[in-house]
Computed example of a mutant assay.
Amino acid sequence: MTTTRRTLLAGSAAAAAGAALGAPAAQAHPRPDNQPKPTVVLVHGAFADASGWNDVATRLIRDGYPVIAPANPLRSVASDSAYLAAVLATLSGPIVLAAHSYGGIVATNAATGNPNVKALAYVAAFAPDQGETLLGLQTKYPGSKLNEAALDFRPYDAGLVDGYIKRQYFREVFAADVPKATAELMWTGQRPADARTLGEPSGVPAWKNIPSWYLVARNDQVLPAAAQRFMAERAGAQVREVNASHVAMISQPFAAAELIKRAAR
């Protein structure tokens, strides 16, 4: 994304929900019970907002984890990463940084150099190496249906354009395994990303020095599962796979929460 660590594949939805994950060699010993739990920071991606993490956050909060889900500005890789880095700098103690989709490139950059970030958790997310772009990774392997036909580009300032997913493509491409009514609401409230983010190169990746976990969405029509596996293996991540669309944290919140809790131990 090249050290390979053990990959755990769930053979069914039930097995995926209950499968245990091994710990990476770089991980410290489990946290003593009397130590405070790390703060979990949940980073959303494009065409979405922080509410996509609601079911995951509910599970984490119930289990005693401090959780915040800041708004991702979706303006540029550099500025969004700087914004998240500033948010992380306000937090004391250990941090687990979890990201979905475009949020992955933001987290990968924002965590670099922050000693409080102890683990990264990617949920169907971009985990680029230095110099790579979203578009390059999205199209590295066949299978993505997030193409120009599916996108609606709307100018918002001189020379600047936002990208939205068109209504007729939204559920199929983005959220095929959530109820139709839910997908309709998600489309209605989707937050666009500046089109420049697609070709903006990423910086020095935090995953080179921070242990990582990855939840692969096998049925992803935005970021092909093959690309997710490639990035996860390259990062040396502990991997779990689920039969899910791109929004695995919504359709499979238990699996996403369990991955994050594994990263937090």
Score class of each variant (00 low, 15 high):
V216D: 10
L160Y: 11
Q228C: 08
V178C: 07
D194P: 09
P224Y: 11
E148P: 08
A226Q: 05
A232D: 11
A206C: 06
T188W: 10
R171I: 13
F153L: 15
L198C: 02
L146D: 14
F126H: 05
A195E: 14
D220P: 08
V216T: 13
P201F: 02
I210R: 00
K180F: 10
V123H: 03
A119Y: 01
A232H: 11
K140Y: 00
V161G: 02
K140D: 02
G199I: 03
R218M: 07
K180L: 13
R218T: 11
I165K: 07
L135I: 05
F174R: 02
E200W: 10
P128Q: 07
G199S: 14
V161T: 15
Y141G: 04
W207F: 07
Q228L: 06
T108A: 10
A121F: 04
Y164P: 05
E132C: 13
Q190I: 13
A176M: 14
E184C: 10
Q190A: 07
G159I: 05
G163N: 08
L160I: 04
G143S: 13
V117K: 00
P142K: 13
P128H: 08
T188I: 14
G131A: 13
E148H: 09
Q168S: 09
Q221K: 08
L151R: 14
W207H: 12
P205W: 00
Y122Q: 04
L134C: 05
V178F: 11
Y141Q: 10
R229Q: 15
P115K: 05
G131L: 14
F230C: 06
A124P: 08
A124E: 06
G203V: 12
N109E: 13
K140I: 01
D129W: 03
W213I: 00
N109H: 13
V204S: 05
G203Q: 14
F174L: 06
L135M: 08
W213H: 06
M186P: 04
K208V: 01
P205I: 02
L120Q: 03
Q138D: 01
F170T: 12
W207A: 01
K145Q: 13
Q190W: 05
W207M: 01
N116H: 06
Q138N: 06
L198P: 02
N109S: 15
A127P: 02
P142Y: 12
G113A: 14
R218C: 04
V222W: 02
Q130I: 15
A149D: 15
E200V: 09
G159K: 07
R229Y: 15
D152Y: 09
I210K: 00
A227C: 11
F174D: 01
G159R: 12
E132T: 12
L185K: 15
Q130Y: 13
R167I: 08
S202Y: 02
A150V: 07
D157V: 09
Q228I: 06
M186F: 14
